[in-house]
Simulated scan of single mutants.
Amino acid sequence: MDVANERTPSAWEERIAADPTHSTWYVERFRKLAAQGEDIVGEARLIDAMLGRGSRVLDAGCGPGRIGGYLHTAGHTVVGVDVDPVLVEAAIIDHPGPTWLVGDLAELDLATDFDAIVCAGNVMTFLAPSTRTAVLSGFANHLAPTGRAVIGFGANRGYDFPDFLTDAESAGLTPDLLLSTWDLRPFTDEADFLVAILSRAH
Rank of each mutant, 00 (worst) to 15 (best):
M1A: 12
P9Y: 05
A11C: 04
W12Q: 04
E13C: 05
R15C: 04
I16V: 15
I16N: 08
D19A: 12
R29W: 13
G37M: 08
E38C: 11
G42S: 08
E43C: 06
E43N: 11
E43Y: 09
I47Y: 05
M50C: 12
S55Q: 11
S55K: 14
R56S: 14
R56L: 13
G65D: 09
I67D: 14
T73K: 15
T77Y: 12
V78Q: 04
D82E: 06
D84R: 06
P85L: 03
P85Y: 05
I93V: 15
G97S: 04
W100Q: 03
G103S: 07
L105E: 00
L105G: 04
A106H: 02
D109R: 14
L110W: 06
A111C: 05
T112H: 09
T112V: 10
V118G: 13
T131N: 12
T131K: 11
V135C: 08
S137Y: 00
N141P: 04
A144V: 10
T146F: 14
I151N: 03
D160A: 15
F164I: 07
F164G: 06
A168G: 07
A171E: 08
A171H: 05
D176C: 12
D176W: 10
T181K: 01
W182Q: 01
L184Q: 14
R185A: 14
E190M: 03
A191F: 03
F193R: 11
V195I: 13
L198H: 10
S199E: 12
